[in-house]
Write a protein that binds this DNA or RNA. Structure first.
Lengths: 181, 181
DNA sequence: TATTGTTATACTCTATAACTATA
DNA sequence: TATAGTTATAGAGTATAACAATA
């Protein structure tokens, strides 16, 4: 606002006649914006930022949501299976599960058949929290995709999915492709 | 909301999996893969990883490319303008420019009109390196988008750009002037 | 000896703010 | 006093490896 106007003025005053066509507005080189990969990286970062911001109110991180989702999907899993499914490091997962357990959202019990293993499952509170996080995620997604129509959103998803099949094989292990609108 | 067809396979109960190469790939919950935002975050990360990997051979980082591109586009800029254009932190930029300067790719000179400022520009070697990095980036992009046809790539880029206009205003069209409020 | 979960360590980013020299 | 560039530092995040219990 005022800082922009001031910067503009000072720049104009220091040089005699630079290029009058564009104002001094910080913009990315066209060349970079023309790259889909570049946009993908920037938007992925924006999406992550916005998601984390929105999750602050819950006291949980998006990766907590990931864990709860896996457990909601498969009812119970060993820690190793959870880590592998999400691509998390097993050592890191321990701390995340500690936090979820402290809040009473998941519980760990020893596998009687292999006492090295912990079998993790959702508590009732965990299921409730999962439903809340699902709703929150839907809000975030709706906001993030708001510039696009429903058809465009489906189109985008289909294209991203095609890329994910190749670059993020964990996404591709599902049998069927996306059904367009 | 179910844009994906139901996965018909349970975890490990199937023995007739037609894919012989990979054993049992741990998969993400369908619910997550169904989210375009989720895919965007994962793919953004993959793209970043692959780019950094490819840049290793050059001894430079992708953010170095960003800086060189800005300078190639605008011939010379102050450090603050470079940082603002790319969204980098000014403090961080100093170190990056040190590295580029040590390699003789850019040069800093004092602005005689305002001796606080450094005006940065490409050297001849810097221009050559920029051309090399452009070619490398093109290769990376081509590889990353390889599952898509040319038309699909253009389609994807258009959709991503629409999102970037909202979430990463630095990407917004050059022609769009700012209405001073 | 290999594997599951755990813990500790070290290294990379990033964000913040103090500092200088100019204005 | 405010700004451009520089430097230092602390915190988060991440990657790695050592470790105990069990197979």
């Amino acid at each position: 606002m005022t800082t922009l106007a001031r910067a503009n003025l000072s720049t104009m005053s220091t040089t005699s006649t630079p290029i009058p066509s564009s104002p001094v507005l910080p913009r990315l080189p066209e060349e970079l914006v023309a790259s889909a990969t570049f946009l993908l990286k920037r938007l992925g970062f924006s999406a992550k930022e916005q998601t984390m911001k929105a999750y602050e109110q819950t006291g949980l991180h998006p990766y907590h949501h990931g864990i709860l989702t896996v457990l909601g999907d498969r009812s119970s899993e060993t820690q190793g299976a959870i880590a592998d499914a999400l691509g998390y490091d097993r050592g890191q997962l321990v701390g995340m599960l500690d936090e979820l357990e402290e809040r009473g959202l998941v519980e760990r019990r020893r596998d009687p058949n292999d006492r090295r293993r912990h079998i993790v499952s959702l508590t009732t509170d965990g299921e409730k929290t999962l439903r809340r996080l699902r709703a929150l995620s839907k809000e975030i997604e709706d906001e993030f995709l708001s510039p696009l129509s429903n058809e465009e959103r489906a189109n985008l998803h289909a294209l991203l999915y095609r890329l994910a099949e190749k670059h993020d094989p964990r996404c591709a292990a599902i049998s069927a492709p996306v059904s367009p609108v």
